[in-house]
Computed example of a mutant assay.
Amino acid sequence: MRSRVRGGFNYDDHVELQQEGIRMTKALFQDTLLNDTLDMTRPVTLGSIMSQSGVTVTVHERGFIEVIPPASRDVDKHVIISAGVHGNETTPLEMMDRWMSDILAGKLDIGCRCLFIIAHPEAINQHTRFIDTNLNRLFDDQVIPTNTESVIAARIKHYTEAFFCNTPKDARWHLDLHCSIRRSKHHSFAVSPRSRNETRSLDLVNFLSAAKVEALMLANAPSSTYSWYSAEHHSAQALTIELGQVNRIGENDLAQFKAFDRAIRFLLAGQGLAMAKHDHLPVMYRVTRTLMRLNQDFNFLFAEDVENFTSFVHGEVFGHDGDKPLMAQNANEAIVFPNPRVEIGQRAALMVCQVTIRYEHGQIIFD
């Protein structure tokens, strides 16, 4: 039987890819990656399948799915993409669901080894940030009481270590995808954690440029976030990436992030970001301070709807922590992630200033 070609489009090959994707999906997922992961009433199907093109998809456990390219492909990156660390941040979850569906259907080429993580199904189902405590504050070395999130953090650390084991350090990537609680002057932005390793590469900035992520914040101190953990303990090129604002599943406008979606597909295909057209450079910020909540009597003086990256004049008071006033210590110092209701001892905001960067030995440097 001759293949039917319509204007350069091979119809029979397209149908075969669709049918293969349906067969693979039914073998591994009863519905889709996201729906199966969030349906806590039934167990997930564990195990591996291989597509006709040689891509292997393995479900290790609920929320942890590994994808391995064909044996014939040279793997130059090992990429973790995580989402749902905070349960009410759902845009990345819907995007991940599409990526997995396209992988299974043979519509997304795979040229690197990758691990998809849907971190906190219970919080996602309840559309809440967390159940007992903030999961994204549990990745340092402090001993913490056993609770819902501490168990998840331990599991994430286990799979992260196993995934990066025996891989070249310069081939390790981790993109932890989030959404902001409040609106931002930059609709999308990233945070590069501070680590003792060379984890701020030119390739990382090229990715952000291709993805049209609007800003990059360079952290100035260790933290307890998941991206910091993968950078500090596994030398991964790691970022926390904020994509729009929190919303419920099904209510997100994914069209706003077409460039980000395209850049991820280039990354996973192992094609190199040089193939993606990008003339956009993110605005660069350095973190000047981390504001920690130290007292019960803590609040900001600005309205609840003040946007991330709102700036203040030098000396302007914008809040208080007990008797201590909170004020801008630099000209045009801006606030990001302000949250006066965090637990005592946790981060209540980051303060940032714009900075000019340069590259030395392929790494970001700023004065």
Rank of each mutant, 00 (worst) to 15 (best):
E316C: 12
V15N: 08
T356G: 07
P43Q: 03
H78D: 02
H60S: 09
S235W: 00
C165V: 06
R182S: 12
E251C: 04
Q142I: 08
P70T: 02
T199Q: 08
L177A: 06
Y11V: 10
T56E: 12
D36R: 14
P222K: 14
F9E: 13
L175P: 14
I81F: 03
D39N: 15
C165F: 05
L104F: 07
A171H: 12
L93Q: 03
M275K: 15
Q19W: 01
I357W: 01
I68A: 15
Q126T: 02
P168I: 01
R286T: 13
L268Y: 00
E304I: 02
E89K: 11
W173G: 02
M351A: 10
N308G: 12
V143S: 14
R293C: 04
G362S: 07
N330R: 10
H278R: 10
T290M: 14
E251I: 01
A334H: 11
E122R: 13
D12Y: 02
D261G: 13
Q271V: 07
W99A: 04
H158W: 05
Q18W: 10
V205L: 13
I144W: 10
H280A: 09
S201R: 08
R98T: 03
K107H: 11
H187L: 02
F116C: 12
G319W: 00
R194H: 09
R6L: 12
N295F: 00
L115K: 14
T41P: 15
R73L: 07
E316G: 15
M292G: 13
F116Y: 15
E16D: 07
T148Q: 15
S223D: 01
Q30V: 06
D176K: 07
N339G: 04
N147T: 08
E343W: 00
C353R: 08
I156G: 10
L115R: 15
Y226T: 02
D305M: 08
L218D: 03
G111H: 03
I81D: 08
Y11D: 05
F29S: 13
W99D: 07
E214Y: 01
N197W: 01
H278K: 11
R196M: 08
K212L: 02
L204F: 07
L33K: 06
